[in-house]
Amino acid sequence: MIEDVDHSPLLHLTTFGSEHRASHRKSSQSLQLDREIGAELFGILCKAFDFAATSAAGGDEARLIAAYRSNPELFRKLIENDEAAHDVVAMAHRRQQVDRFRRLLTDDDYFDSEVDASPGGAESIWQKFFEANPWIFGLSLGGQLLTSWDDRRLEQVVAGFSVSGVGKRVDALLRTSGRIRSMVFAEFKSHRTDLLSSKYRSGCWAPSHELSGAIAQAQGTVHRAVLDIGDRLQDKTSDGSDIPGRFTYLLRPRSYVVIGQLSEFIGEAGGEHQEQIRSFELFRRQLVEPEVVTFDELYARAEWLVSSPSASVE
């Protein structure tokens, strides 16, 4: 094997003639094969010697790899012009993101390394992750499709008649899709945040300080937004002018708190702690707003979306 001028591998074959010739043996003929030609030769050999039954899959893969490396731009154009191929690529990306979601939840060393590399701490890791993957919020939190208020970031400041300037900061500002759109708020903490604190009375466990604080924060954010903005917010263009007929409503807007994991309720022997489960479920189901969702519940929904045979890419 030798290298071409671009450092790609070449197979160099040389013949030296007969061993019985009078003169000293020397190279008489040479042939160099690159990856593309090698793949073609492999296909010819498979066909000539009936290797196709056992080697067709490997041969096809080798030829595809060689063709892609010889002209990757052409492959990209083919994919861009093929709607099905675009869906496959997009779904593959989402599966990769769900796998990263799983690692962030279950691999402590991986999550700690991400935190060490981020100046904002644990919550900023999730902030950035969900900003890069708004589809997880949009398809998982409710029955309606939720879209980010701003394509560039989920976190916004709610004040006055806009969502910029000094005001109440919300981790994720979204809105429903459809003819009538409504504003939706979300706050998220860390998957390591406790959902419950200590036992308050026999069989009753109190919500953790972080959970009750997050609920109060979400309720305050929604209340301030409704007071400042009113029932309806006019959509505007980049120059500040109104977009006719484009409004977002704030009529008892929905809100969510994403916090903790249900695995907190698994005991030392691997069994479920029924009193803790009952305390948590009764607490969150009696809340009018916000709705409390755990990180592992959000992950399970995202995993289902990319594993379901009927899953589609919006």
Rank of each mutant, 00 (worst) to 15 (best):
E291R: 14
A214T: 08
D231V: 01
S310M: 13
R153K: 15
F280R: 03
S164F: 05
S307I: 08
A66Q: 02
A302S: 08
A186I: 14
D82E: 01
Q286D: 12
V98Q: 00
L173C: 08
H24N: 13
S198C: 11
G260N: 07
E131R: 10
S308I: 09
S197R: 15
E275N: 09
V115N: 00
A52Y: 08
D296V: 01
Q96T: 12
L233E: 00
E264L: 01
A311G: 15
R224L: 10
R246Y: 09
A172G: 12
R169C: 10
D107G: 08
D296T: 07
Q286H: 14
V293D: 01
G267F: 04
E281S: 09
E297F: 00
V257E: 04
K128R: 15
R252E: 12
G138Q: 07
D194T: 13
G17A: 07
G58Q: 04
T176K: 05
S238R: 10
F42V: 02
T54P: 00
K26W: 10
L154G: 05
W126F: 12
L31I: 12
E314G: 11
S198M: 07
R179A: 15
D87H: 10
S162T: 13
Q261Y: 01
S124N: 04
Q127V: 05
A225K: 00
H93D: 14
D228P: 02
E297G: 01
A159D: 01
A66N: 05
Q127F: 03
R175D: 00
T237D: 09
R232I: 03
I259Y: 01
T14G: 04
E123L: 09
E275I: 03
E40I: 12
V158K: 04
L305E: 09
S177H: 10
V184R: 03
A132D: 09
G230T: 02
E3W: 06
I136C: 01
L141H: 10
V158T: 02
S279Q: 11
E131L: 12
D34F: 06
L78C: 08
P309Y: 09
V98I: 07
F49N: 13
H24Y: 07
A85S: 09
D6W: 05
L173I: 06
A84S: 12
L195P: 04
V88M: 12
E3H: 13
G59T: 14
L41S: 01
G178H: 15
S23Y: 04
Y256N: 10
Q156G: 01
Q276G: 03
D6G: 09
L287D: 00
G43D: 08
E40R: 12
G230R: 02
L10E: 12
V89C: 09
F111W: 02
R201W: 13
L233Y: 02
K47V: 04
S8W: 01
S182D: 09
S28K: 13
